[in-house]
Design a protein around this nucleic acid. Sequence first.
DNA 1: GTCAAACTTATTGTCAACAATCTCGTTGAT
DNA 2: ATCAACGAGATTGTTGACAATAAGTTTGAC
Lengths: 230, 230
Amino acid sequence: MAENRVTGQEGRRLVSTAIRQALSAGDLVPGQRLVEQELSETLHATRNCVREALQDLAAEGLVELVPRRGARVRVVSVEEAIQITECRAALEGLCARRAATHAPAEQRESLREIGAGMRAAVSGGDLNTYSALNRRLHARIAEMSGQTVAGGLLDRLKGQMVRYQFRLALRPGRPTKSLPQHLAIIEAIVAGDGAAAEEAARAHLDSVIDELRATPDTEPQEPRSLGAHV
Amino acid sequence: MAENRVTGQEGRRLVSTAIRQALSAGDLVPGQRLVEQELSETLHATRNCVREALQDLAAEGLVELVPRRGARVRVVSVEEAIQITECRAALEGLCARRAATHAPAEQRESLREIGAGMRAAVSGGDLNTYSALNRRLHARIAEMSGQTVAGGLLDRLKGQMVRYQFRLALRPGRPTKSLPQHLAIIEAIVAGDGAAAEEAARAHLDSVIDELRATPDTEPQEPRSLGAHV
DNA sequence: GTCAAACTTATTGTCAACAATCTCGTTGAT
DNA sequence: ATCAACGAGATTGTTGACAATAAGTTTGAC
């Protein structure tokens, strides 16, 4: 049992990424309390590290920090998820347009590989692969557009949506609906048609919004404490 | 000599707003070092407060925090300012559209008062008032749109632009060019025409981008230390 | 049996001293 | 004169203990 407690600015990063992962893996439910000492023991880090990591996560909008009362996993309502997606539509529209008009043709055409992979994943029923390619496509477009500022904002926004994105992807019939939209974005970008690319990106996210609207508001998740006995 | 050093979470807020103000007032130039002890003495705060305030400002993108080397006022290049404004165009377009289609008519019409004030300020040559009304108009539209997420992102982006916004507003002939754009946005929103409102907002910010393109890249500002003697 | 007040425990916030690191000026050799 | 190694001072980072507060629990009166 190597007792090397992580510490310092490196530990801070480690702790925050650990929490991030636990969050996207669903190990932490919205509303759950995050107790500093508890985390510091679990992650073998100083309480200071944990504290600073929590501040970072709060700045990213992933946790809520109430003075003197500690941190909880932030709860994003469906309403807020919709607003986030509306912002995404605006920003990804910008990125898609710029990717179409600004990126070299060779890079643009490489998107078709992702498209082919998506098509294969959907017809093969491999939802995990499709979901991964989905993220990759969006990230790649943002990168190709050269819009680093927009890219940063999008990362931030997507981080707050992990819980919803997960659910949406698993909904029956969803891939069949979103696949052609993704392909349309790709084709518009490859064609170098900025206006069409922006339009396609927006249409795609508008469809996500429709899907969100059909989502029941999350019941106030019971923060399952560790000592929860039946 | 009341020796009450500010402390705690309140001090943290006080320090960060003090720095924010100094930043927008031009008392702190980009690239300037922010030494913790120095600030804590000037602002009568604990070094801890200052430290945490700096973290907050770093999370907002106002200062740059290099490990073991301290904090400096972040330098935003013209290129980055342009990207920021492109994001603003996308997001303010969204807000303008929603304000036009979603806000009650009564609220929308109240924008005309701001428009009239702007017209008066420009014809009277009162740049400060015009600039203040400018900020107020944009903020009001974001508020009316009900898009709190977009509003938050916009606040953040504008915070990083203080230096440029200041310069642009003072440029000769600029108000004459931007006033009709602002009035067009207002009229489209009052008319309830979402598409036109979005288009007008975008056109306005595109014009800001043109102005930025004509901006010489900032020479590496000399961090005028306090003890700078001739 | 119910409610309120005091008490206990769990948890976060604060601090001051110490440690680690960097910056910059000085010295000395080539 | 130039450069590298060295060292002093300045600045940030870290720690552990303590203070302050909130949450939960018991006790006691009615």
